[in-house]
Design a protein around this nucleic acid. Structure first.
Lengths: 207, 207
DNA sequence: TAGATTGTTAATCGATTAACAATC
DNA sequence: TAGATTGTTAATCGATTAACAATC
């Protein structure tokens, strides 16, 4: 398949969902899975799943389906999590702590390996085996540890400042949990994961 | 506008984003705003913003723009957060605590007013002014307090069970933070807000 | 009036789904 | 071989954007 073809966001966002279920199957020692099976389990159209995967290569066998472990390997490669990606987080509040708990789940594919905060009371605190550092050390640490993704879990009014620090330090992508729009250069990818907008849009669907 | 017209998810998800920025403008005593202004600030096409709003009514004035406070009122009505909506949360871990912190931000429009956990060690704990209750009390509390939305912040393997409890108790919509697909009757709306899939899809955009 | 900006239609663009030949 | 299921094309469906008459 043509690597230069632009893959849509919607496709990319489904890949981790496939991966998560495939991991489950793998742990149950399931060998193969069809797009039909996946579609039922994940509430998606089987044709869509086949098409999503076909953007990146021919991973299945006609008449058989997909080899679970092979597909896991391929999706990890596509998502670029086949090698460890280091992540930094700013904002050692409850949300920051919660996200650090996912390190175990992310296994050896992604790792929050540095946490920063501006408040002196937080500095030196241990979250699992990570020590909270002052934001002044952000730039140096990001370079030293080759951190490529930054997570923002500070209050809305500090989000832009933190984004600026990340950008200057050379981070390539940002996951923003603050309820604020942050502006960054076009080459930096930002995903917003704002709880309040999620909850408000859910209210629309009440009767 | 035709109320029976099906509004797309994409439209509904943008409304809270508009609302958040309009609230900012209102606090700065800005009287009116154009779709142009909004578009620049929110990185959206002005025509899209006008079209989104036009699904629900004629809220603007030609040649002038939108009255900020009037539009806030209208969007709140559309999202059904013009009256207080009660929310329950199961899973009093770090993530549960973090979400409870947003109560102040959600003001008098939505409120997490009950928190449950299965672990005896958590029961009775105070989160701000909410006392953590055992899950056995979930159904009764949800009915008593007229709770309409449920939030799941338990580990993946317990998510489906909690979803079942919510559905039985009569909740109308669920916000699921667990990295798991939960199955519910079609009339119950589920939004997934899973940190791990967000982070993994972000990795795709690294160079 | 002249300039600005909405609401809405038509055009474009993109994503999903159906269908089926290829083939395991 | 017969049945199953992929990869892919074509058809459908839906969302975004451009353009502009209406009008403040």
């Amino acid at each position: 398949m043509n690597k230069t073809l632009k893959i849509s966001d919607a496709v990319v966002r489904r890949l981790p969902v496939y991966l998560r279920y495939l991991d489950e199957l793998s742990m149950k020692n399931v060998q193969t899975v069809s797009s039909q099976d996946l579609g039922i389990k994940l509430d998606l159209n089987p044709a869509q799943i086949r098409k999503d995967l076909a953007y990146f290569g021919e991973f299945g066998k006609k008449g058989i389906g997909y080899d679970v472990n092979y597909l896991i390997e391929k999706i990890r490669q596509i998502l670029k999590i086949d090698k460890l990606i280091n992540v930094a987080l700013v904002g050692a509040g409850n949300l920051g702590h919660a996200l650090c708990n996912y390190n175990a789940y992310l296994k050896d594919h992604m790792k929050i390996c540095a946490v920063f905060d501006a408040a002196p009371s937080k500095i030196g605190e241990k979250i699992h085996n990570i020590t909270v550092q002052p934001v002044q050390e952000l730039s140096e640490t990001i370079k030293d540890k080759e951190i490529r993704i930054g997570i923002i879990t500070v209050p809305a009014q500090e989000a832009q400042q933190v984004a600026n620090l990340f950008v200057e330090a050379g981070v390539e992508a940002i996951l923003n949990f603050a309820p604020a729009i942050i502006k960054v250069p076009a080459e930096i990818r930002v995903h917003n994961a704002d709880f309040t907008t999620e909850l408000q849009s859910l209210a629309y669907f009440l009767d």
